[in-house]
Amino acid sequence: MHHKLGFTNRASLIIRGFLKEHNSRPKGTCDQPNVIKSNDKIPRLGLFLFLRLFLASMGSRHSPFMFFKSAAASLRGHDVIRCLLITVWLVMVIMVVGCSSSSSNRKLIVATAASSQFYAMELSEAFTAKYEIAVDVVVSSSGRITTQLLNGAPFDVFLSADSSYTNILFAQEITAAPPEVFGTGIPVIWAMRKGVAGDSLISLLSDETIRHIAIANPKNAPYGKKALQFLEAGQLAETLSEKLVYGESLAQVNEYVLQQNAEIGFSSKSSMLAGALLNHGTYLELGSDYAVPHSVAIIANEKDDELKKQFLSFMSSEEGVVFLEKYGFTK
């Protein structure tokens, strides 16, 4: 029967039916008797309650929110769910407005390069335990932290794996004092292969069973830069260039080697000593020529400078140096 009707007629029927079903206040040409189904009552109660709550929350029943009122009234829904959803939405929005972050003055945010993250985490925990000052540690790459600091990031202390970044920040007067080197990280070469002695890792690089060598991106990761220098010094960079796979960070390199997607890789001693990799595989430290100096800088902002200095002096205190050694940095 339906398909015999022209499109317009059919649409008209649909709309007529719809209006009939949902309109309790007929006006104009729509002179249909009101049809209220019994199962409409519960949802209406819900809508009614919701509207009352909504209007009450506006402070007055005759609030200037007439638009919402008429829009909501014209919804005249047939489902509690809709009301519930709207309520959830509203609660969420109120929370967004209400939960605007209040940063305490007695709290430090330490931004650290990924290569010193394990050290920074433990150091911060010890600092909090001793002085009861909360420390949030934000881990990222030195380059990204620098970009963020240049644009007003609320970090207080910056542990950088690349002193060129802290120098830029100092030149831009974002740091309160010139950066200081707090420790030197040692690049390593490591593999998961069993029965390989540490010393033979370098000769293993040119082995034909090695198909992939993982290295952190030399453009932005200092440990990657040093690894490339090491390969170049050994006249290996060119012959091995096809085997090199680049990770965006040391963690990615470690992941490649740990899962043996790359048979061998260049990483840092610090990550070899971290929980997840401790006693996994074999590693060999590269010489002191390839050491990576890590520097620390205090960021100038409205927060108490004394607190930041306290953190720095804790770093160089006897208690702090313990963590430096634990994660393979030399003072």
Partner: peptide, 23 residues
């Protein structure tokens, strides 16, 4: 949404807002 939906609702005396929300 075919134009006719709007037009029919208008001929039935519905306002623009009402048509939008209910049709």
């Amino acid at each position: 949404i075919p134009k006719q939906y709007w037009q029919i609702a208008y001929t039935l005396g519905k306002s623009k807002t009402e048509t939008l929300f209910r049709v």
